[in-house]
Nucleic acid binder design. Structure first.
Length: 391
DNA sequence: GTTGGCGGAG
């Protein structure tokens, strides 16, 4: 659409492009600007992607493209993310063909005005490794390097000229929001009491008799150190000290079971993971989808979660709601493969389901161990009931 | 009101 607004590859442009091609020296800037520990590989598009912020909510893609036009880059993609409400997020990502073009855009367009707003244009940060959060919104330690080193900001040394004007800092009202509840200053050392070079086993032991230290730490559950051997192999590493966690007086995450990252087991030969289901689909409907294609599941299980609503300020449990995905068991590997072929993209309601080989469930823990684990989620009641119901 | 998505794992 809007061919007329397109950058129009004029002869001039092309020559420019050509020039760039030859001149293009991707190695110009040292790639190693990133923080030392920053393990993450940069995405292929990093450096060519431009973040455009402070957009008016009314700004359309078309307007945005016009705004970008003066910088003349070859835009491969424009993305205007939205928020939950479907409201524009107020920023955009522009993918340019080359870093050169991206840098040019930043130089020429940053701080320009669009729809009466001063737009900020910058090289987009590499996608933040988003920490999976559990239901209560607590960030879960994934063992990823995390943002920390991201501080190696401005990996994009602007081409040249006055580009390095470092106008980045615009006086914000707040200088910096202080970390909500980090360890108190002394806390740094305080933390060390947890740090026991190893996993906190020591701390657990000590606290047992040492008592006094942390009256608050009611329960120190012993870290069932990586019992889930399988997945510990891939991710868990060693436990790391995780601030925030103990700031609350609770067991530091470093001492908790590495259960978080959703440990996944081996690929199953009979189990299927089905996602993107409409929330309205239930077990029966899912089963039927399979049977309609001549595959008879041994079982179909939509994964659900409890829903809650509030009455008089009190939380009450409502019917369980689908989480939008399911596990379906079939007879054998053939059936499994067949199902994937036949049902991939199968339309249910208004969605096309995705289906793939499921990973074998990793057993939570031994004996009643998982009871403990669940308790951490603060959902044990719900789960308990669930079990009752389903028994 | 300033850094997404392509999800999700009982």
């Amino acid at each position: 659409m809007s061919d007329e607004t397109a950058p129009v590859a004029t002869a001039a442009d092309q020559s420019i492009a050509a020039t760039q091609e030859t001149v293009e020296a991707p190695s110009t800037h040292t790639p190693a600007v990133i923080g030392v520990n920053d393990v993450q590989e940069k995405d292929e598009t990093t450096g060519r992607k431009v973040f455009v912020g402070n957009l008016s909510y009314e700004t359309s893609e078309e307007e945005l493209r016009e705004f970008l036009a003066p910088a003349q880059g070859n835009i491969l993609d424009v993305n205007l993310p939205k928020r939950f409400n479907n409201k524009p997020a107020g920023y955009a990502f522009i993918l340019y063909e080359t870093e050169e073009q991206a840098n040019t855009a930043v130089e020429k367009l940053d701080k320009q005005v669009l729809n009466e707003r001063e737009i900020s244009v910058a090289i987009a940060k590499p996608p933040a490794p988003k920490k999976p959060r559990n239901k209560r919104g607590k960030a879960v330690t994934t063992g990823t390097a995390e943002s920390g080193t991201t501080g190696a900001d401005e990996h994009a040394p602007v081409t040249e000229g006055e580009g390095a004007d470092g106008q980045a800092t615009k006086s914000k009202k707040k200088k910096a929001k202080r970390p909500a509840r980090r360890l108190p200053e002394e806390g740094a050392e305080d933390a060390e009491s947890f740090i026991p070079g190893s996993n906190g086993d020591t701390s657990a032991a000590q606290v047992t008799d040492g008592s006094a230290k942390k009256p608050k730490a009611k329960r120190n559950r012993k870290p069932k150190s990586a019992q889930n051997g399988e997945h510990s192999a891939e991710g868990a590493h060693e436990a790391r000290i995780d601030d925030e966690g103990d700031a609350e007086g609770r067991t530091p995450r470093s001492a908790r079971a590495p259960r978080q990252k959703t440990a996944l087991g081996e690929p199953s030969k009979t189990l299927l993971f089905v996602a993107n289901l409409p929330f309205s689909v239930d077990d029966a409907a899912l089963t039927e989808a399979f049977t309609s294609l001549s595959i008879t599941p041994k079982s179909s299980k939509i994964i659900t979660k409890p829903s809650y609503h509030y009455v008089d300020g009190k939380r009450e449990r409502g019917p369980r709601r689908s989480k939008g995905f399911a596990f379906v068991e079939v007879d054998n590997e053939e059936a499994q493969q067949l199902a994937i072929e036949k049902l991939q993209g199968f339309k249910m309601g208004d969605r096309e389901i995705t289906i793939k080989v499921a990973n074998e469930r990793i057993q939570q823990a031994d004996e009643h161990g998982d009871e403990q684990a669940l308790k951490e989620e603060g959902e044990k009641e719900a789960v308990a009931e669930e079990q009752k119901q389903e028994a």
